[in-house]
């Protein structure tokens, strides 16, 4: 079997500057093993504001509190499972409020449950955000006229993002996460809505 002495094709993308391509190795693997992505794509020095840096960190690891109140919770669970895979955005469900950043109010808030929702919110450390998912959490939805239902969770806790739908599709909840990330960066840059909640 003859040894292929032909040089291997150069696979480093053309748009990379030459100094970022693999240095000559002398073993025929030039251009095959390239430096890690973060070395190739990022400059060596980043200058930014601390707030922006914190904003980047916050928006990249949003941990929602794992609890559901009604049928919207089924869509929320679906969103976080393998098919939609929110783990790729750093969004991981967590079953304790002490380590959570985001509360998703997924479902009808009844008056008997409202104090518990408020307590869970208060147990979460700052900074924290709230997504009101579905018609019930926004306004009481089809049960708004009931004697037992809170007409919108924003009567109990402050809400950052509202997701309409009955229930919203997983794509809508994913869009809400994107909006929340934008919101976090806007506030970090100082040109968004300001408040004590970060």
């Amino acid at each position: 079997m003859a040894v292929n002495s032909e040089p291997r094709p150069h696979v480093v993308p053309n748009h990379l500057p030459p100094d970022l391509a693999t240095p000559d190795r002398g073993d025929g693997l030039e251009g095959v093993l390239v430096r890690p992505l973060y070395q190739r794509m990022l400059p060596k020095v980043i200058t930014t504001r601390a707030d922006t840096l914190f904003g980047l960190a916050r928006k990249s690891s949003l941990w929602p509190l794992q609890f559901g109140l009604a049928c919207c919770a089924i869509e929320m669970i679906s969103t976080h499972m393998a098919h939609h895979d929110l783990d790729r955005f750093g969004i991981v469900m967590w079953p304790s409020p002490r380590q959570c950043d985001v509360m998703i109010v997924a479902g009808t808030v009844v008056k008997k449950m409202a104090p518990t929702v408020k307590l869970l919110y208060e147990q979460m450390p700052e900074p924290k955000w709230v997504i009101a998912m579905g018609a019930c959490a926004i306004s009481g939805g089809p049960f708004a006229k009931s004697y037992a239902v809170v007409r919108g969770v924003d009567k109990v806790i402050p809400v950052d993002v509202y997701v309409p739908g009955c229930p919203p599709r997983p794509e809508a909840l994913m869009d809400a996460y994107m909006r929340l990330q934008d919101l976090i960066m806007e506030r970090a840059r100082g040109n968004g809505r300001q408040g004590a909640r970060g």
């Binding site: 008997k112 006229k145 004697y147 037992a148």
Partner: peptide, 19 residues
């Protein structure tokens, strides 16, 4: 219901939206 809830909600005379 909870302690102190006003009225009995499934009675016909009870307003749907509560007292």
């Amino acid at each position: 219901l909870w302690e102190g809830f006003p009225g009995h909600p499934l009675l016909k005379s009870y307003p749907v939206s509560g007292l």
